[in-house]
Design a protein around this nucleic acid. Structure first.
Lengths: 233, 233
DNA sequence: TCAAAAGTGTTAACCATACACCCATGC
DNA sequence: GCATGGGTGTATGGTTAACACTTTTGA
């Protein structure tokens, strides 16, 4: 089958910058390309948009097909369209970033991906196309967003301790936070307003005092967000 | 001439939400479409991306062709790609927003545009496609951005008074600001650091005390931005 | 001389920051 | 019993917010 148009069209792709936290540092998921161009190079998971799916759907589909991931937090990042960003031909790519919670099923390579692996953002291998730049933009966006929106919870397990939450913020903001001030803030802006729920459950099996567990209430947050809820660490 | 591909491709367009301030309220520039679909409807200026131009270039070209505007502040907004957003066929649109200073050459209709007109954001006519939604997203982005980046200056004349600057912020933030507190803040965060330059010039021809004029130093801001300059009203 | 907007300081409330010790648990 | 991280309150300095009158100009 072939498709013919009166004017030339760029190809349209999506690419995903998938973040997770591992051993207290920010990681990105990369796939090793099985095909030219850049065969054998590491790249962002992604691929071409199909005619009957939205851009968000395309991003989710490609993620599922190439890495096995589903149920992630996904948000559009930026659209990259320099005429020469793909050596073959004009390809415009709508980039997304995704946040994944630890403890889900492990990633597995499939489709066009030979291998799939998590890399710490501080030590990325050379990347195909302009993917290095895309990762850079995604990191900046994430760091900016976390200051005024509670996206960080998407990087934690469903039930988490306040120490985990604090470490997450320290990793993302790249500065140490005071434990007591952090807890007071979380208490008054998140717990008091019901965005974070204090559970009657505790850690188990640790060789020190067990920490209380908490849960993020996304529905409650959405509700407050509409009323102009001003989040700030 | 015809162009043939092995797989179908969405068409790729750009659309621009052009903002200006007029009589103390935020306006958007719309064009009346000269062609189907939505012939006779108001729409955002925009059009299809050509193969040899970047997305930014496409946005600037379309703005120039349809409205005569050039030399505007332009920034990518979001990419809209619902499969049914265009009734003819699949069209993905990379939306931009632009800020224009008052007092430039007047806009003029050309190319596919029958008329060009400024509308206050509070009273927009029915818009073609999903352009109403795009405008909505652009307004939210602008309101958010102005809180932590000095984009507002792109909506003021090159030389402006502090009262104009304050009115601008009041329009964008939708709340009144205290004159003395506002001036102190501008003094210590912008003037003291050289981002805004105090001129030895004053308004003329007003029937009250003449206000001092100021100028935004974009180069100076760029320089500080790299060093992690924390702007905040 | 009047109307209209420019320009200018002080005080009180609030918020952010810095800081140190006891508690519970598993080994 | 000791090592490990969990959990808790207060005092200080800095920032924000509220507030009113005098000045300059053109008509």
């Amino acid at each position: 089958m072939a498709y013919t148009y009166a004017y030339p069209r760029p190809a349209l792709a999506v690419d995903c910058v998938v973040f997770s936290i591992q051993s207290d540092s920010l990681h990105v998921l990369l796939v090793e390309r099985a095909q030219a161009p850049y065969e054998g190079w590491w790249a962002l998971p992604g691929g071409f948009v199909q005619m009957d799916e939205s851009l968000d759907e395309a991003a989710r589909r490609e993620l599922r097909e190439e890495t096995g991931l589903s149920d992630v937090y996904l948000e559009q990042l930026y659209t990259f369209g320099e005429p020469t960003r793909d050596p073959r031909s004009r390809v415009v790519s709508v980039a997304y970033y995704a946040l994944v919670k630890p403890g889900g099923p492990p990633v597995r390579a499939a489709a066009d991906a030979r291998r799939v692996e998590w890399f710490p953002t501080a030590q990325l291998p050379p990347l195909a196309f302009d993917h290095r730049q895309i990762v850079q933009v995604a990191i900046e966006r994430l760091r900016g967003k976390v200051r005024y929106r509670p996206v960080g919870f998407e990087l934690l397990p469903r039930k988490f301790t306040l120490a985990q939450l604090q470490r997450l913020y320290e990793v993302l903001l790249e500065r140490p936070l005071d434990k007591r001030n952090f807890r007071r803030k979380v208490q008054e802006v998140l717990i008091a307003r019901g965005v974070v729920e204090e559970l009657d459950e505790f850690q188990a099996g640790v060789r020190h005092r067990r920490a209380r567990l908490y849960r993020f209430d996304r529905a409650r947050y959405r509700q407050l967000e509409k009323q102009g809820f001003d989040f700030e660490l």
